[in-house]
Design a protein around this nucleic acid. Structure first.
Lengths: 339, 339
DNA sequence: CTGAAAGCGCTAACAT
DNA sequence: ATGTTAGCGCTTTCAG
């Protein structure tokens, strides 16, 4: 491994000049510049990033905290995050918290040890008061998450709006018994979505929907189980909103197995626009989350905060989701399909 | 940010002693040790990792090169890789090559700049001669990939065996017209799998299967298109092997749409054991890849190579996959279902 | 058992 | 326009 010193010697110049060439500083004559470049090439010189990090007090690395990467929603998010970061010259360190407070802290420590320049949290396990202490060491932003008291930038989807929208749509089609499956992750978004949903019901003067509300439902298997419960109800719901497409898929597969007609007997809407929604018969109506936009905004914001060294600014970047009409949402009483 | 110097001062000792405590060296009296620890706590001291990296010539970071992280097979792989790495105190930098030679090189450069201690490649875009030059700078291993001439450790699945096994199984059930969809990624595994498949056919004295062979088929949409072709053949195949579950899903969805009975009219086997295989009616028979084992072995091997500073050892770590019987594989002539 | 000092590779004042 | 020098924070000889 050759160092900047070696290059300087070979070029017959000082380390400073080499460094200047390396960093595109002005005030280097073209002549010397050429000399340096030739020497670098000859030696196959590459700057050592640990030395640079130490000297510049920055690493060019961002940590992304995520519950589990194999969750399709998150892996989609990471894909864009990585591409964006890469295009700005940043690397991404992946940190799976697995819903553990402890692991979350261990990863936040990367900020203290200066192994990363900033942190993007896509979930929050600890109380904010705990996380707040890390803000003294570098910028943290929330992506796809939203904590009321947090003094940091937050990039998220307006879930209240989306819950309201879907509910409204179903109500307008005449549904009054609408089941709702929530993933039950302790996230602000999950809660807001439910609130939006409920406020639409209240506007329609529908109360007492407790029996149609299910919590901690997030897998295909969960969906299947829920359907068993629905089926046995005296007044089964005519529509159902699933917090994740996997749940919708589970509901539908079980419903079909038991001879129900989807959407005739039960209208189903999922969330997240995963590939599977197009594979299942009937194709699942789903709510598209603006993942790409959110990811791009997140990288933009974290980079800005790193640059400006602002660690405690409150900022809201809110985006909207969109309902995709598909077979599972249509019934005799309504519409035409799209996409 | 306090440094080791601050701690030393506060404890009334030298930097050396503090460093010794930090690194669990022997020959530090318990008394001084306590002193140091108290000082560290008092200051909220955390060692700076850039300084450590520079001094120790290692970063504790491993780069994982991957085509696209949102591919479910890869996101599953990364999930385990990250957990394993984390348990050994390593961080993972994610690098999406997006099938680009250029990006692959850019990421391999992390090795030269010493930003990472080692690289795990889950795909290889450049000629090996190109990649070989990076071996002077640190260890590289292949995971889920296998390049003949490469002088590095390779952790992979014996695809020849798996292709042979599936073909054999179908042949034994009386199928003679077996279609084969290959993803067409230029990977050794893809090729070996096909070779395994073909050798089984040859043993059964079946030749001239060109018409049943399809390349560059890897998405749901591709699968749907392929089915259209099959349907129009004078002698349509009675069985089909899809290189990825998504393709199998596409085939099946299209087949059902056109009134075919699966597996009655066409037996379908996918690859990778993705969630979707259980959601589709009929459930898709698929080949389970030992992803977890492969991931664990990969981390184990890369850590060993980092430790021993061996950059050019050839090693084979081969694992086997397993066929999961499901509805899409059974027909009148055969068996009982499992899981 | 403890400390002084050198140096990992780089950049940025500060001269010249 | 170029070079000299100090120092980022840490670990490790080497000396005591």
């Amino acid at each position: 491994m050759s160092t900047i010193e070696d290059v300087a010697k070979l070029a017959g110049l000082s380390r400073t000049t080499v460094s200047r060439v390396l960093n595109d500083h002005p005030y280097v004559s073209d002549e010397k510049k050429k000399l340096v470049q030739k020497a670098m090439e000859q030696l196959g010189y590459v700057p050592n990033s640990a030395a640079r990090s130490l000297r510049n007090q920055k690493t060019g690395i961002i940590a992304v905290l995520i519950p589990r990467i194999s969750d399709p929603f998150f892996s989609q998010l990471i894909e864009i995050l990585e591409m964006e970061a890469s295009s700005k010259g940043y690397q991404l360190i992946i940190c799976q918290t697995q819903f553990s407070k402890q692991k979350e802290c261990r990863y936040l420590n990367l900020l203290k040890t200066k192994q990363v320049d900033g942190v993007i949290m896509t979930s929050v396990e600890n109380d904010w008061s705990v996380i707040d202490t890390y803000l003294n060491f570098g910028p943290v932003i929330l992506c796809n998450e939203n904590v009321d008291c947090a003094q940091v930038p937050m990039v998220y989807i307006n879930q209240a709006e989306s819950g309201y929208m879907v509910a409204k749509y179903l109500l307008e089609r005449g549904h009054t018994r609408i089941a709702y499956c929530s993933s039950g992750m302790s996230r602000k978004g999950t809660q807001s979505r439910l609130e939006g949903f409920m406020s639409a019901l209240q506007e329609a003067d529908i109360h007492d929907y407790d029996q149609y509300f299910f919590e901690r439902v997030s897998t295909v298997g969960d969906g299947q189980q829920i359907f068993r419960k629905l089926e046995n109800m005296k007044a089964a719901p005519t529509a159902l909103i699933a917090g994740e497409d996997a749940v919708a898929a589970g509901i539908i597969s079980e419903a079909k197995k038991l001879g129900w007609n989807i959407p005739g007997d039960l209208t189903v809407v999922g969330y997240d626009h995963m590939t599977m929604t197009k594979l299942i018969d009937p194709m699942i109506a789903t709510v598209i989350q603006p993942v790409e936009i959110m990811a791009k905004k997140s990288i933009e914001v974290i980079c800005e905060k790193i640059h400006k060294k602002q660690f405690r600014v409150f900022e809201n970047h809110e985006f909207s989701s969109k309902l995709v009409f598909r077979q599972s949402l249509l019934n005799n009483r309504n519409l035409v399909a799209t996409s």
